[in-house]
């Protein structure tokens, strides 16, 4: 009955699953992170460090990978890198948007960041929310759209002062050239870093930025496995630990419960 056994084996199982390749079948995983985002993804020497990097390490370990290679994932190329298979997963302050979802899938979000405002500690008492920025100088980073949400969408009459980068904005904030810097709270917290005496986040969030894990479109098995790992990261307290490790000193209000997932596929 060898033939019958063969059919039994073939029909009974083994033939399930999609035809789509999953990251779960790989030996080595390539993960894209930010190389220049303090607190989130920063290259130091040959190593990467930050919240995104730690989350990526936790998740890939839960998926059973010991070999993980980190490479930089520049914002403009993230979809392309996933589509072409240059990276398997992206953890790089990668906001889930409907447009991006037409090209790639997202696990998570693993954190919902909010646009918030960083001011000098001495001004923190008078600036309660974004409307109090009226008539003040707001830092505008070349190429970033965050200022639009204040000036155009919230219609707050601010004066824009241009700067090439957020670290430059922080310097200008301390020197008094600008009064406020506004972008994702985790990014602000990362840049503010140890400067907790001189600058302060006002904790008046006004957008949701859902940081997702980018994954190739159609890899539903991989996407769901990442979601499960993220759920466990919150359940076993790791998420809270990592959030406090990277952003705790800045006084930012951190959410330590699992975010609402986007759903796979």
């Amino acid at each position: 009955m060898a033939g019958a056994a063969l059919i039994l084996a073939a029909a009974g199982c083994g033939l399930g699953g999609g035809d789509q390749q999953s990251i779960l079948d790989k030996e080595v995983l390539v993960v894209g992170v930010k190389p220049d985002q303090p607190g989130l993804g920063l290259r130091k020497g040959g190593e990467y460090e930050g919240f995104d990097v730690d989350v990526a390490k936790y998740v890939t370990r839960k998926l059973g990978f010991e070999n993980v290679t980190f490479i930089p994932a520049p914002s403009a190329q993230r979809e392309k890198m996933l589509q072409e298979g240059q990276v398997d997963l992206i953890f790089a302050t990668y906001s889930i948007t409907p447009e991006r979802k037409t090209k790639v899938d997202f696990s998570g979000p693993y954190y919902v960041a909010h646009q918030d405002t960083l001011v000098r500690a001495s001004d923190a008492a008078v600036i309660d929310n974004v409307r109090d920025l009226k008539g003040r100088n707001l830092c505008q980073v070349t190429g970033s759209n965050s200022w639009r949400r204040v000036k155009e969408e919230r219609k707050v009459a601010v004066n824009l002062v241009e700067a090439p980068s957020y670290s430059d904005c922080i310097a200008k904030l301390k020197s008094g050239e600008v009064d406020a810097v506004s972008t994702d709270d985790l990014i602000l917290a990362g840049f503010a870093g140890a400067e907790t005496r001189s600058v302060k986040i006002i904790n008046a969030p006004f957008t949701d930025e859902r940081y997702g894990v980018g994954i190739k479109k159609g890899d539903i098995d991989g996407c769901e496995a990442v979601n499960k790992a993220i759920t466990e990261m919150y359940q076993d307290g790791t998420a809270e630990k990592l959030l406090h490790k990277w952003f705790g000193p800045t006084g930012l209000n951190l959410t330590t419960t699992v975010p609402q997932f986007e759903g796979c596929g």
Partner: peptide, 21 residues
């Protein structure tokens, strides 16, 4: 919300396995 997504996995996997079979 996540519970619904998680439990939907059972249905998807059953579908993929059984319809392939």
């Amino acid at each position: 919300y996540n519970l619904t997504l998680d439990s939907g996995t059972i249905v998807r996997e059953t579908y993929e396995d059984e319809s392939a079979a």
